[in-house]
Design a protein around this nucleic acid. Sequence first.
RNA 1: GGUCCCAUCGUCUAGCGGUUUAGGACAUCGCCCUCUCACGGCGAAAACACGGGUUCGAGUCCCGUUGGGACUCCCA
Length: 524
Amino acid sequence: MTVITRFPPSPTGFVHIGSLRTALYNYLFTKQQKGKLIIRIEDTDQTRQVDGAVENLLKTLKWAGIEYDEGPVLKEKHIVTNDHIFTNDKGQITKPLSTDVKNNKQSDMYGHLEEKGSHGPYIQSKRLDLYKKYAQELIEKGHAYYCFCTKERLEEMRKKQESLKLAPQYDRFCLKLDKKEIENNLKKGISCVIRQKIPNGNIEFNDIIRGHVTFATQTLDDQILIKSDGFPTYHLANVVDDHLMEVTHVIRGEEWLPSTPKHIHLYQALGWNLPIFAHLPLLLNPDKSKLSKRQGDVAVEEFIEKGYLRDALINFIALLGWHPTENEEIYTLNDLIEKFSLKRVQKAGAVFNKEKLDWMNSVYIKKLSIEELAQLIVPYLQKESWYRENPNILKYIQLIRERLKILSEAPGMLKFFFLDHLKYDVTLFENAKMKVDKNMAKNSLQFANDTLKNHEFWEKDEDLKVPLLSIVEKLQIKNGQLLWPLRVALTNEAFSPGVFELLAAYGKEKSLQRISEALMTLKS
RNA sequence: GGUCCCAUCGUCUAGCGGUUUAGGACAUCGCCCUCUCACGGCGAAAACACGGGUUCGAGUCCCGUUGGGACUCCCA
């Protein structure tokens, strides 16, 4: 049996990091099983359509390295002209993308898409006839019925039930309607929906992750299958499509667990085989609630913009809810494909631990060559007004590589290299712990200036050590009493790379300029 | 409220009845390196929610309690 899985996002804007993990788990499982992954667009809620969302989704999947076998693809032309995600051949982002997505009710929302695969269309709004057909079949078989209740009546009913502390459920008012009344209502064009008729009894199923699960159907509501606008709800569309697309494994978030019995009943009512279910644990906020935008970043686009590397983000989210047996944290995509196991997926939700992501990102940054890193950092620099091309850029980046956690921090760490003049914060020169006061700073800088002026070797930081440390010896001071003022003179920062490295990166001329300008500031 | 799911360090997790004085990673703290910060090295502190069973033996199996979460929309 060929494994067929699917990832069916709703195009409502940005890509949620939890969705990306669901997509990743589907991908890992499918790749390992040598199966097929289907992408399906679940756009059955007309009110939540967001233009550009599908495009954004497909680009994000591409960025993440998640390949699929069937589903919508961007037309070639479109990729070239409108691509706002640029990736190099390693799949790393080379230019931050914009997250602008605007509401748009254009009819040709999907004009820039084509499809691959033999089970299409892969966009649910283009499959409306199919859902109607099966809804009709359900009605004929007595598993569904028309409902003409108004929103007002339903609301009233719900209020009453709530005040009686009952579970809010449809009271099957319209189930009592006879054929004639229904036909009349339909003829008159009264707004209606089609509801699923849930039978009495228990529905049980096996979940790969959770094991045996049982639901009493009495507690299940008669779910709406077709909305009054003619669109299906998730429940119907999902079951119909999964069946028609021959999906074998439904791997989705835990939030779907409570509605799974409804889905199972639909499969049974239509006489279809059940897929195998696997309900993934939720990604959580620090307060353990479902991961949401309110409590931090959840959009994959935001992580990309902030400068998280593809491999780091993938590695990190793969380990949120799953881990192989060994004591290892760093895995490539291929490692993950090889080692992944649905059976080892955790049952409990996982808090999204941003500190660990930062650490992991720094690990991946350190693995990059300077050239690769520069290619990633330059786009961030280009957004700064002070940026201009500089032949020494690789030298500069070399100095910050070890301290960089996310790429967007780079401009702040490199700024002083690009400014013509620094506006010194004089208090920075003084440092009690270093035993440096203003006079000491002035004195040290003066000696440094005089010494370095006559020094010719600037190639390596080692070249500067001997002359500078000879000053320390001569003045009988501590290293820090010379080097602290020097660093402030060179950077106007309290934290920075080492002084010798800075001098070497600046070169003689620029170094001496910084030092004399600092001296002038201190003297004034 | 109802239904379902879940429960090992602060966080992500290893553990699938005895190999456990419960292992790793992030974060925290200390020491070393050192001109600061970071990196790196070494080390410390830190968990089986609780109560009953089953068993010669339970973090591991069962039941209950407590706690948390999801769902309960003409959202997905």
